[in-house]
Nucleic acid binder design. Sequence first.
DNA 1: GGTGAAAACACTCACAT
DNA 2: ATGTGAGTGTTTTCACC
Lengths: 136, 136
Amino acid sequence: MIDAIDNQLLDILKNNSRLSFADLGRTINLSPSSVRERVQKMEDLGVIQKYGIQIDNRKLGYDLEAFILLKVFPGQLANILKIIKDFPEIKEAHRITGNQNIHLKVVVKNQTALQELLDRLMIHGDTNTFLILSEI
Amino acid sequence: MIDAIDNQLLDILKNNSRLSFADLGRTINLSPSSVRERVQKMEDLGVIQKYGIQIDNRKLGYDLEAFILLKVFPGQLANILKIIKDFPEIKEAHRITGNQNIHLKVVVKNQTALQELLDRLMIHGDTNTFLILSEI
DNA sequence: GGTGAAAACACTCACAT
DNA sequence: ATGTGAGTGTTTTCACC
């Protein structure tokens, strides 16, 4: 269903999703309409979920990024799952296996903001925080 | 340097980076050229690092996603930093604070592939793996 | 699955406000 | 900083292979 050409398109779009169908077609030797059809097929299948951007949060004054593992208190899980979307600092959230149940990626302005976030999370579970030093 | 209108643009682009400058302008009542200028300014400043796509890896036959915390063996850190880009399974890698030094997000086809990846990582450090159950 | 053609639309630049 | 206009390129649809 997804062939080698589709994978080529995905590879290109991963690094620049704003290329025109014409440009995509030029790099893989295909007409704009064929490219369009393939991309639309992948959108319809849900293979391509979303076109997004990568933002440098530090350039926007958000100088602290961290991963937080959360071991939710008994009976608090359903509650947490509901309110997680109300935290603008939480950019990604995943259910995970292991001793902890939830993995968060958070972006905040500074240590004070991180502390306030942790204070609010601590109500629902034990937290384990890893500051992000750099991307590799 | 980044004003409220820029932030509006970023918010829209986060969820659909393929919108035309004309469409962006229509939703925030600005001419296409002004939108273009603002977006280009943010690209030049490095605020917008990249236009990308979100892919549903499970729909591509990659059924297992995991976070791996790596406690690198003494003297192995420089080595690991060099070879991490040679692992196609590793989609994200960060240096972190704490007892472990590196945080990885990996995508693999199945348990066998995960095991093989862990075998290769174990040479350089102790691993701690959390399978991803779902996004929240 | 892929192409080609035509109308509608968007992009880009210089110039004006 | 934002808007306008003219020229160029792109998207979209559809009939065809």
